[in-house]
C-alpha cells in the first residue's frame, strides 16, 4: 500500500479550500489543525460557538485566561478585531447562513453527503455540541478525516450505520488519500495522494466513485 498523508498534511490540503475573507468554524481533531496552514495572503476569521469571532493562536502556559477559550476548551490569546456575544447569537450566525465554511471530523459520510460524527454506537451516549447546527447551517461543510477506520473499514459508505449528525450536508471530503466531491449524482474523485490510483481508492470506499476527467495528485 502506498503511504497516506498524515493529519497535518490533511489539514494543509483543507486550508487551501478556505477563501480569503471567509468566516470559518473549525471542529475538533484534524479540523483544529487547519488554522496553522492557511496560505499566505489570505485572512480567515474564525468563529467559535462559545460566543467568539476572530481568535488568534493558543495561549502558552502562564498566559491562560479562563475568560478566553475556544469551544474545545483551549485557552486563546486576544487578537485585534475580536468580538464576544451570547450563545443564541453564536448559533444565529451558524443557522442564519453567515458562516461560509465549517470543517468537521467524521466517523462516516454517506454517498449522499449524510454525516455521522457525534456518537460511537458502542459508547451508547455522546456529545452533539454544535455539530448538528453547523451541519444544517454552514454554507459549506468540509469533512476532514482518515479514509478508513482503525480496523480498515471504509468511512465513506452507502448508508451511515452510526447515528446521523445531518442529512445531505457534506460538500467535500478530504482524507489521507483523496479529495472527493459530493454532488447530486454521487461522489466524484477529484484528487489522489501520491502513489495512489483511483482503483486503490475505490477498493477502500464503499459506494462507487466517479473519477473526474482531470483527476490530479494532491498538492499541499
Amino acid at each position: 500500500m502506498p503511504e497516506r498523508l498524515n493529519r497535518e498534511a490533511i489539514a494543509m490540503r483543507v486550508a487551501k479550500e478556505l477563501p480569503d475573507g471567509a468566516y470559518v468554524n473549525l471542529g475538533i481533531g484534524i479540523p483544529t489543525l487547519v488554522s496553522q496552514f492557511v496560505p499566505e495572503g489570505r485572512t480567515v476569521a474564525y468563529h467559535s460557538e462559545n460566543g467568539l469571532l476572530r481568535y488568534g493562536p493558543l495561549a502558552a502556559p502562564g498566559q491562560e485566561d479562563i475568560d478566553l477559550i475556544n469551544a474545545g476548551g483551549q485557552f486563546l490569546l486576544p487578537v485585534p478585531g475580536m468580538a464576544f456575544f451570547n450563545s443564541a447569537e453564536a448559533f444565529a450566525m451558524i443557522r442564519g447562513g453567515h458562516i461560509d465554511v465549517t470543517v468537521l471530523g467524521a466517523f462516516q459520510v454517506s454517498e449522499r453527503g449524510d454525516l455521522a460524527n457525534w456518537m460511537l454506537s458502542s459508547r451508547g451516549v455522546g456529545n452533539i455540541g454544535g455539530a448538528m447546527d453547523l451541519a444544517a447551517g454552514a454554507k459549506r461543510v468540509i469533512v476532514a478525516m482518515e479514509h478508513t477506520d482503525p480496523l480498515g473499514n471504509p468511512k465513506i459508505v452507502r448508508e451511515c450505520s452510526y447515528p446521523l449528525t445531518g442529512q445531505h450536508c457534506v460538500s467535500l471530503i478530504i482524507t489521507d488519500v483523496a479529495v472527493i466531491e459530493v454532488g447530486a449524482a454521487g461522489l466524484r474523485l477529484r484528487e489522489i495522494a501520491p502513489g495512489w490510483t483511483p482503483e486503490a481508492i475505490q477498493e477502500i470506499t464503499e459506494p462507487r466513485l466517479a473519477v473526474a476527467d482531470n483527476v490530479k495528485e494532491i498538492t499541499l
Binding site: S87, A88, F91, I128, G130, D133
Partner: peptide, 14 residues
C-alpha cells in the same frame, strides 16, 4: 438525559 443540539438549546432558552 435530554440531549439537545447546542444551538437548539440556546434558542429554546432564549
Amino acid at each position: 438525559l435530554e440531549l439537545v443540539p447546542q444551538g437548539t438549546l440556546a434558542e429554546r432558552i432564549r
